[in-house]
Design a protein around this nucleic acid. Structure first.
Lengths: 227, 227
DNA sequence: ACAAAAGTGTTTTCTCTACACCCATGA
DNA sequence: TCATGGGTGTAGAGAAAACACTTTTGT
């Protein structure tokens, strides 16, 4: 084997996770007070370093598991942030992931042990380093994904009303959507199954709960919503 | 400053570039015979390691400059490939970029000095490691981008016919496009300026040359073509 | 009875698509 | 004049948007 690889720089490589959740009709992100210097105590995304023998995907999965107690989370690589000066503590190349989790399923103890807090995407404190930018890029990636596929499975409880799904999309795209048109569009995709029960908390009439059909015949390739 | 960053693994970080060009009505990629072991002599993307004090963007720009002689190239980060075993020579995390260059502007000497060769995207030799996958992901990213913005500025000569632009899109999406509809759609974007000259090589009547207007008022946010 | 949200239907507008058809010109 | 690609026009399908209207039920 050659020594081609010798004499070249080696880098600290990290992952940072933009963790999205949905609660109280609001799209939220999970933020943590940073435990170490520099910028100790300030709000940041949760991250961690990539180990010798794991892929960065695996590193992100590990970080998510440690911070939320959840496995099998939907998650997608966003992009790498690599300005040599982005982290004043050291030269760290960070790979950003966005994750979608169901807040109702998280392990509250683990979350609290980290001092983590859910913040609305429309109103969260300033973040360290380039983490604000990471959130912004992740949100637009989430919008892109939500326009391509019907998400909700990843963010809502098993059973949800069309109102909830619409509110979720309104939170993601940050604009109101016509209830009637939304309903027609979503149901035309034939991936939702109506249940027998109704949610009566928001209206006298009540709205039916739906849930996602088992086998995902998704990836229709067409856009659901204009962005 | 804390020693939080100590004791963590350091990694070789590389960039690999999927270089797209357009020639003879074909979308092509630029491939290189690998100069070092392992897999010496086999076809691969051009890549290089990220130095201590450069961003990975800068590393990609540097690699592009070294291999094509071009600066100021359009280029976009695609994703990181990080399987610990992806490179049998060492554990290397590679960030893939796709670049769009005008073949007519490249520095032929530099290209030839590397033994590089342009291959049609529809027919190129097997590549080393996970480079085939890198090309596949980059192509679909290119399709996404071409559907969002009108590209062509990055791949075509300054003056081009609508035929050329259409052929480019046909090459990118790998399907025929209706000439009349394509013309109407593209011209409705109001970013092309008709010139006085005609190209008579493809028809007796000749087709006008167009060029992109100076100030890009692009990013209309809407899709140009269904994917 | 009424208010309020769930749910349905209708109308208008816009875009995509297919395809017919005219135009210009070199051979 | 005729074949060929350039360029224009048009009719139909389908989707999106706007919005009127009906249903249900707790208060």
């Amino acid at each position: 084997m050659s020594n081609y690889y010798q004499g070249t720089s080696r880098h600290l490589v990290a992952v940072d996770c933009v963790i999205f959740g949905y609660e109280d009709d609001l799209l939220k992100i999970l933020l943590f007070p940073r435990r170490v210097e520099p910028a100790q105590g300030e709000w940041s995304l949760m991250g961690g370093f990539v180990d010798e023998n794991e892929s960065i995907d695996d590193a992100a999965i590990r970080v998510l598991q440690l911070t939320t107690g959840l496995t099998n989370i939907f998650m997608e690589q966003v992009k790498a942030f690599s300005d040599p000066l982005r982290d004043p503590g050291a030269r760290v190349i960070s790979n950003v992931y966005f994750a979608l989790i169901r807040i109702d399923r998280q392990d509250t103890n683990i979350i609290q042990a980290h001092g983590a807090k859910w913040w609305p995407i429309t109103q969260f404190p300033p973040l360290i380093f380039d983490h604000n930018q990471m959130v912004a890029v992740s949100l637009s990636r989430l919008q892109m994904k939500a326009g391509l596929n019907l998400i909700g499975h990843e963010l809502l409880p098993d059973f949800f009303t069309l109102r909830m799904l619409r509110k979720l999309y309104e939170a993601i795209f940050q604009r109101p959507l016509d209830p009637g048109n939304f309903r027609k569009k979503v149901l035309s995709l034939n991936v939702l199954q109506k249940s027998a029960n109704k949610d009566k908390t928001h209206s006298k009439k009540g709205s039916y709960f739906y849930h996602f059909e088992k086998k995902e015949k998704q990836d229709n390739g067409n856009f659901i919503f204009k962005l």
